[in-house]
Design a protein around this nucleic acid. Structure first.
Lengths: 205, 205
DNA sequence: TAGGCACCTATACCAAAGTATAATTCTGAC
DNA sequence: GTCAGAATTATACTTTGGTATAGGTGCCTA
């Protein structure tokens, strides 16, 4: 039966997850409220198979806490958990070699599945994570686009010129320019490249 | 014990995977060589828990084969498998509600893990997929970029204008234009939007 | 039927992007 | 020391992109 160490400074979060994993799955679970005490417990008698680190927790200092844990215990699988981190943080954590990233929005069942997945040697990453929040443009901005504007944006996302788009849509180049201008305004960006990038980032095309 | 149906037109691929899953994991595995015969077997006596569809296979017609399978058997989990598809296809498949996407570069062990993961109700997607091979530009094209050209491309990927890039790099606008021109040539694209899109698609920035 | 909206077009203008040629500096390799 | 390549800048040019204003059509709805 695998040993798991959960490090999170929120007592409620930490203890409920631990209780769930122990009672439902029969895992042996240890807990810690900050990185230092987590490192202490890692050095205990029983080797830990999986370490779950909260991204916002005393001692973490962003992702440097992840580095520290990996360096000190290279044999232990480490998963980063966070309720607030964005896609960038999650990707950086994976780049650093984390065995997984778990948003706190996971259901209990998915959490267990993810843990089992990691314990079997895979790396867990929710494929649809981070496709939500925006920076400049409101999420629903795409909905305000007219049909033609959507078609224009679609071609724009392949990197076509106005002339090519005009040919494909069977209209004059000036018309395309108008559509492009409207698209830029509605998405709140300042040129076609940004529009294409934004649409791609949000998986609109 | 779950029932699995593997549909792939490559006999070798299909049968070795099937044999592996049957002998090592004890799954009950059916096979098919194209979409039509797969649909036939789906209607057989034993309900299928998991359907694995090859993206390049007679009858698939891109992702419309996925639609067809999902529509006909909404209760069955469907995973798309491909050796050549790019990130875009994989994402579209997931958007359409596929329960997973498996590149053929997976190891046998990872394949089994992924299958178990999907069978337990999760959706599988290799988090680092798509950072490898290319479609239009040669893979190593980025490597041929000089330092300045890389820096230029990086800013280009945020949708900045030549003027803004020049300011950020502390050079004249003409210099940036030259770099941009070289980048376009080396990547084999015809404008800055395509360059940004390509770099993003390959997760170069 | 009158107004609003999406769509298309025209003319015109200015800014930005991209191409071409040439010349300078610096660095490292031969 | 010379040669090659990267990086830089300059001048000049053409094409594309983006904005502005104005007008036309058709369709739907109050």
């Amino acid at each position: 039966m695998p040993n798991i160490l959960i490090a999170d400074d929120h007592d409620l979060v930490r203890d409920t997850i631990a209780a769930y994993l122990e009672s439902v799955e029969g895992f042996k679970v240890l807990t810690a409220a900050d990185l230092d005490s987590a490192m202490d417990k890692m050095s205990g008698p029983d080797p830990i198979d999986l370490l779950i680190l909260d991204y916002n927790m005393p001692g973490m200092h962003g992702l440097s806490g992840l580095d520290r844990a990996q360096k000190s215990f290279p044999a232990t699988k480490v998963v980063l958990m966070s309720g607030v981190a964005n896609r960038d943080v999650a990707n950086k954590a994976m780049d650093k070699g984390a065995n997984g990233f778990m948003p706190k929005s996971l259901t209990a069942a998915s959490l267990v599945n993810a843990i089992k997945f990691v314990l079997s040697g895979e790396r867990y990453f929710p494929f649809d994570f981070g496709s939500s929040q925006a920076s400049a443009a409101p999420s629903g901005a795409f909905a305000t686009l007219s049909d033609r504007e959507k078609q224009t944006l679609e071609q724009l996302c392949i990197g076509l010129s106005n002339k090519e788009i005009a040919r494909n849509l069977g209209v004059q180049e000036v018309t395309v320019k108008l559509h492009v201008k409207n698209v830029l305004a509605k998405l709140g960006v300042s040129n076609r490249t940004q529009a294409a990038l934004l649409a791609k980032e949000k998986h609109f095309f």
